[in-house]
Simulated assay, not measured.
Amino acid sequence: MEETSPIVAIIEDDDAVRRALTRLIASFGYRTLEFESGEKFLAERTAVSSDCVIADFHMSGMTGLDVLLKTKSEAESPPVVIMTGFDEPGKRSRCMGAGAAAYLVKPFERDVIAKTLRDILDH
């Protein structure tokens, strides 16, 4: 992994899922940053920069949609991918309408997340 590789911030409150997703994304050659909450990500955002954000929709405190809306209100916002294990009618359209770069339903295949990140980061 090179110092110039894109950085993907992973916001997931389930430790095991966050670690697994971090390993998976690193295996694609991207650098990763891990956050257990949207609040932690936003608090540390000025100190760390990311090229893409993957946020779980359902977390205690801020949801992934809350993170998306907060980052979209800033001048330079990275693309945000929303993921969820609880897909519900209208959730995808709400997230995409709010500006999500992609919407993924867990569990997703390795190829799905790889293609999603390539489409977003490998211009």
Rank of each mutant, 00 (worst) to 15 (best):
V8K: 03
V8G: 06
I10N: 05
I10M: 10
I10V: 10
I11N: 10
I11R: 06
E12C: 06
D14Q: 10
D15W: 03
D15M: 03
A16P: 04
V17I: 15
A20T: 11
L21R: 01
T22S: 15
T22W: 06
R23N: 13
L24C: 08
L24G: 07
I25Q: 01
I25Y: 01
I25K: 00
A26F: 02
A26K: 14
S27V: 13
F28T: 11
G29P: 13
G29W: 08
R31N: 01
T32Q: 06
T32K: 01
T32P: 03
E34C: 09
E34H: 05
E34D: 12
E36H: 07
S37Q: 12
S37C: 13
S37E: 13
E39W: 01
E39K: 04
E39R: 08
E39F: 02
K40M: 04
F41H: 07
L42H: 04
R45M: 07
R45D: 07
R45Q: 07
T46G: 06
T46Y: 14
T46K: 09
A47H: 02
V48T: 12
V48D: 08
V48M: 12
D51W: 00
D51V: 01
C52G: 13
V53D: 07
V53E: 04
V53L: 15
I54S: 06
I54D: 07
I54V: 15
I54N: 06
A55Y: 00
D56I: 05
D56V: 08
D56A: 14
M59N: 09
M59R: 13
M59W: 11
S60H: 11
S60T: 15
S60W: 07
G61D: 13
G61I: 14
M62T: 02
T63V: 09
G64F: 05
L65A: 01
L65D: 00
D66F: 00
V67Y: 02
V67L: 06
V67N: 03
L68F: 03
L68D: 01
L69Q: 01
L69V: 00
K70V: 13
K70F: 12
K70H: 11
K70C: 12
T71H: 02
K72A: 14
K72W: 02
K72Q: 08
S73D: 09
E74H: 03
A75N: 09
E76P: 03
S77C: 13
P78C: 11
P78S: 08
P79C: 12
P79K: 01
V80A: 05
V80F: 01
V81M: 04
V81R: 00
V81C: 05
V81Q: 02
M83V: 14
M83R: 00
T84G: 06
T84A: 09
G85D: 07
D87K: 03
D87S: 12
E88F: 05
P89W: 08
P89E: 15
